[in-house]
């Protein structure tokens, strides 16, 4: 890893591969296709959730909302009958401030990592959320309590704790690139790349794993479970693409990142949307985004329905 510190790729090579850089993303795509006024719809998960309900996009069910500090004390009652739930800030970014509770042990709650946490600590966490600790620019926030997602057992052998999620870049309603994020022991069960999560690039036509990286390096097997990553096949791939394509109709942002989880009972669910999706997806796929984005940009007429867009992606995307 130390050696890689001093390895560079040439500008021209990067350009040839069609890697989208941060500046290019910000100006040519986010700046051009994402209307600022629509940002609150994705930055605030509370709003996203309500939109999702309206457009019948499946998402984890909302169990409660804590909006004010005085409501924090009502958590006891709210959580009384729940053994598993997720508490997250409505306007958190980068997965910050998400607390996953998978069970109880006496008075204590059990986190996804297996660590125990007291009700008091949960209250403090909610207090922090309300004060805006996890929100962009530290603005006051609200805390959402949602159903816990039960990961499809399909991924059990590929993931160390945590729920694997699928990040899909949706450009003008066309899903253009996808990756599966698998947490590892190093990443502490988080699907965060620079903490060591594994990114699996998915073939857009089939939903099959095509490429995988950890710490920006290619790998074939899951570092903890040793499973061959190339065997992964996302079930019901066209349905999943349809779900994310609908997100475009629902939000209207031209350049969108959708995070999908596969629930063992309910199938693909929308976890959250992102108006500024990161660039690591290119590393996970070993491919650049630019050729695909340009292909969509070059379309004379875009398809009006999500179904048609998905059909186009399944058949014609590079």
């Amino acid at each position: 890893m130390f050696k890689s510190m001093f390895k560079w790729i040439s500008w021209r090579r990067l350009n040839d591969i069609g890697i989208l850089g941060m500046n290019g993303r910000n100006i040519d795509y986010i700046g051009k296709y994402n209307d600022r006024s629509l940002y609150p719809l994705v930055d605030n998960k509370f709003k996203t959730k309500r939109m999702a309900q309206k457009y019948q996009v499946l998402a984890p069910k909302l169990q409660g909302v804590i909006e004010h500090q005085y409501e924090v004390k009502t958590l006891v009652n709210l959580l009384a009958d729940k053994d598993e739930f997720v508490i997250k800030p409505a306007r958190g970014s980068g997965g910050k401030g998400i607390l996953v509770i998978t069970g109880r042990k006496g008075d204590q709650f059990v986190r996804a990592s297996g660590k125990e946490i007291s009700l008091e600590s949960i209250e403090r966490h909610v207090t922090n959320i309300l004060a805006g600790l996890y929100s962009l620019a530290g603005a006051p926030d609200v805390a959402l309590i949602e159903d816990l997602i039960h990961a499809d057992p399909l991924f059990d052998k590929y993931s160390y704790q945590g729920v694997p999620d699928i990040r899909i870049i949706v450009f003008k309603g066309y899903p253009v690139m996808a990756m599966l994020r698998l947490s590892t022991e190093v990443s502490d069960g988080k699907a965060n790349f620079h903490q060591g999560a594994v990114g699996v690039g998915l073939d857009m036509a089939t939903g099959k794993a095509a490429y995988a990286v950890q710490f920006e390096k290619r790998l074939e097997h899951h570092p903890d479970t040793g499973q061959v990553l190339n065997d992964i096949q996302i079930p019901n791939w066209p349905d999943l693409l349809l779900l994310v394509s609908k997100c475009y109709d629902m939000i209207g942002l031209g350049y969108l990142g959708a995070d999908i989880v596969l629930d063992k009972d309910k199938g693909p669910m929308l976890l959250e949307l992102n108006a500024r999706p990161g660039l690591s997806i290119q590393l996970a796929n070993g491919k650049g985004l630019l050729p695909r984005l340009r292909q969509i940009e070059a379309l004379e007429e875009t398809h009006l329905t999500a179904e048609k867009r998905v059909a186009y992606v399944l058949t014609s995307l590079q």
């Binding site: 560079w8 790729i9 990067l14 890697i19 990286v213 290619r218 290119q282």
Partner: peptide
């Protein structure tokens, strides 16, 4: 809109792709 210098390092793994 060009690349940032450190992106040449960040995407260095793409060389083998």
């Amino acid at each position: 809109t060009g690349y940032r210098l450190l992106e040449l390092r960040r995407f260095q793994a793409m060389d083998q792709a």
